[in-house]
Design a protein around this nucleic acid. Structure first.
Lengths: 245, 245
DNA sequence: CGAGCGCTTGACATAGGTCAACTACTGTGG
DNA sequence: CCACAGTAGTTGACCTATGTCAAGCGCTCG
């Protein structure tokens, strides 16, 4: 049994995602309006944040942790259609229900807004609406990029692409020296990675082993990864090296 | 050599997409502002509307025809990441370049706005910004749905899903009687369908033949399709029948 | 009539899925 | 402190869906 982490940031001023989330363009008074309808909630790994089809009481931002957006076929085949990391927004204003399941992958803190008052804020506050449009367009672009991965890449390229995404969210990669020896813990099980990439856990496992054997990655246990050379990883992923930034 | 169709709709009042496009919420004066920066252009099948990486001079709406948004790997593997049909919006306000190629699939009429003045209109006109946010969210949802198709469906299910999307854009399917004998011409070659579904033309062809053999579809030539029973098609696609509407 | 393109069909190859056994942790109770 | 049960991951042997390669069909255009 894990201990629930109490959120240490009641105040937006201390918030780790203050300058990347929906609220990033808000001034003091707009922030106050948002604060008035916000609450924090902690989710445990595996816990459902939102069921597809259920009424959506809240929208909000991932503050820490990781969550998945996914869709499942009747026979159980599942595809992750979005990976939510800190500052990402969950939920669609102006909609009663979500078409996708949202699930915590790791222990995750959400900054939640009650949906109805938030809807009104979106229409009345250009700072929120504008940022939301920008974030939605970013996500659409990321989703489309991911469609290339799902539709056309080999298992090997898929796994390398996945590792590149995770490594990329940790490091400022614009500087060449930051592209060496990137180390991180995977926030996903092999199962979740399989759902993300449209592959089975066995294939994931084999590709990890192959990449390790070839020195593209180093593994310490199943979850801790070191990428000695980010550019080499991108090459394996089949990406046009600089396309992402 | 085909004859260039002259656009018969200089006036927004006659426009076939007046109530679905970015301008759908605009009043007379806002419409006038849009009209001031709009021009029409006709693209021939195969013609490029926007190259990935090139400066984006225009954004705009598909009025008639069909176009693809796609991304290509260095070795030529291509994935269509968006299918643009009448009323769909092309381009991202606030961005200098597009990360994707946009190509006409059939003869296509675009209603184009010069990008910079359009950018300003987006920030100053809530009717445009709001509609754009809604359309972007719809596209994000569609892109995510498509990720399930690409990542987890079989070739058979993919082809059926594709046909369901095309058939669905023609017919108002909320009425049961409209779900019988839907007939249409495919606006895509087998090659383009392959790029859309992440499959080869041979696999597409085999699946078309199989669906025909089983009576799920009828074919007259390679392009004209009749769907005798839309619900049966959805069943083959593996879709939770009513999920889409 | 012939060339060319879009499409179909067949024979065969292979990437990745399936099934099954095994390893390595992690936490629990005696 | 050990035994063990349960969960996550790895590896191997084999199978199958889809890709590859090749031949041929049937339009349309010249």
């Amino acid at each position: 049994m894990r201990i629930v982490t109490p959120p240490e940031f009641r105040e937006c001023g201390d918030c780790p995602i203050r300058y990347r989330a929906v609220c990033s363009r808000c001034e003091t008074d707009e922030l106050a309006a948002l604060s008035a309808i916000k609450t924090y909630k902690v989710y445990q790994p595996g816990e459902t944040i939102q069921w597809a089809g259920d009424a959506m009481e809240y929208v909000g931002s991932v503050v820490t942790g990781a969550a998945s957006i996914s869709e499942t076929l009747e026979d159980g085949r599942r595809q992750m259609v979005g990976l939510l990391l800190p500052s990402d927004f969950v939920g669609r204003p102006g909609r009663e229900t979500s078409p996708f399941d949202v699930t915590a992958l790791a222990e995750t803190v959400m900054c939640r807004f009650r949906r109805k008052p938030f809807d009104e804020l979106v229409t009345s506050t250009p700072a929120v609406a504008g940022r939301l449009l920008e974030m939605t367009m970013d996500e659409l672009e990321a989703a489309r990029h991911w469609m290339l991965v799902l539709g056309r890449k080999t298992a090997r390229e898929k796994v390398a692409s996945f590792l590149a995404v995770i490594a990329g969210r940790r490091s400022f990669l614009s500087k060449e020296e930051n592209r060496r020896n990137i180390a991180f813990d995977l926030p996903l099980t092999r199962d979740a990675i399989g759902d993300y990439l449209g592959l089975t856990i066995e294939t994931i496992s084999r590709q990890f082993s192959a990449l390790k054997r070839e020195g593209v990655i180093e593994l310490q246990g199943a979850r801790h990864v070191i990428v000695p050379d980010y550019n080499a990883l991108l090459a394996v992923a089949g990406d046009d090296s600089e396309a992402e930034f």
